[in-house]
């Protein structure tokens, strides 16, 4: 996926020579303590930060592409803390994820209301399916997103990403803000989606979740990759444990955990 990636902000190197390759069909975990640059990898792939080095997504070299074009390729991503205005409803959020499907054009809404209504029914059906596939309540559609619990908002953000029918899904700290039951549910749902052919790359610091869900993990530490491989082999290596020493909240998602820039470059 990325080759010799270098990212720096005002002289501080966030990533140095990181190469990661996500095989199609895998669940790929990217792990590391705070400040290791794992979210920066996602931001570089998304086109949110400038980087040198190659970025390849689904057979295209995209390092010079604007963000929206990259996400038109069948890639989708979520955010560590989804930033959603307080009036936005679940239905509207799902339709944002649906943008790639070129339906409900303005002219059609204006001149052909019946055709538009047919398209709306179709969208509602797909939104319902997506919510169900994640075990979310389909009766939530007219609820305002911000009135829901954080764990559900995170799940809705995954649903929003899935609305684009992606072949590659990037998840940014999906378990942050979720409770144990929600984390277990998420792991199970992701494996089901993966079994249906979805490739998933997940940035996480909850090792228990990663060990349970991933086929491969890569460990980052201060902007460099230490190693990668199967989770049961990688996570017992002494240098990996070393990197994690002093960072005690590795087992469980901790809501007091410092926000690593909320998954966005500083704005």
């Amino acid at each position: 996926m990325v080759d010799e990636l270098d990212v720096s902000f005002g002289g501080i190197h966030a990533l140095r020579g990181v190469s990661l390759s996500v095989p199609l069909g895998a669940i790929y975990g990217i792990v590391g303590p705070n400040g290791s640059g794992k979210t920066t990898v996602l931001n570089a792939v998304s086109g949110f930060v400038r980087s040198s080095g190659g970025i390849h997504v689904l057979g295209h070299s995209v390092s010079r592409w604007p963000s929206h074009r990259r996400f038109g390729l069948g890639m989708a991503r979520t955010f560590q803390v989804p930033k959603i205005s307080h009036t936005l409803t679940v239905w509207e959020l799902m339709r944002m994820g649906d943008h790639g499907r070129r339906d409900r054009a303005w002219w059609k809404e204006t001149l052909a209301p019946w055709a538009a209504a047919r398209e709306e029914r179709e969208t509602r059906r797909r939104v319902g399916d997506t919510l169900e596939s994640l075990g979310l309540d389909t009766g939530l559609l007219d609820t305002r997103v911000q009135t829901l619990a954080q764990g559900i908002i995170k799940m809705l953000d995954v649903a929003r990403a899935l609305m684009a029918a992606p072949t590659l899904l990037l998840l940014d700290e999906p378990t942050a803000g979720m409770n144990e039951a929600e984390i277990a549910n998420l792991a199970q749902r992701l494996q089901a989606l993966n079994a249906a052919g979805l490739t998933i790359a997940v940035v996480e610091h909850n090792i228990r979740f990663l060990a349970g869900a991933c086929h491969i993990v890569a460990v980052l530490h201060v902007g460099r990759k230490i190693c990668d491989g199967r989770p049961e082999e990688v996570l017992i290596r002494p240098d990996v444990i070393e990197a994690y020493l002093g960072d005690v909240d590795t087992g469980f998602a901790d809501p007091s955990h410092a926000p690593e820039n909320q998954g966005r470059p500083a704005s």
Binding site: S46, G47, F48, S67, H68, F71, G72, A76, R77, F79, P82, K83, I84, S85, L88, E92, R95, M96, G97, D98, H99, G100, R102, D103, R104, A105, W106, K108, E109, A116, R160, A161, A164, R264
Partner: peptide, 22 residues
């Protein structure tokens, strides 16, 4: 319409809009 939803996404969060392909 799709146009309006895209505008709404931009005003909600430009990053959200970008990852939705807007």
């Amino acid at each position: 319409s799709r146009f309006g939803v895209a505008l709404r996404a931009i005003s909600t969060d430009e990053y959200l809009a970008a990852v939705s392909g807007v």
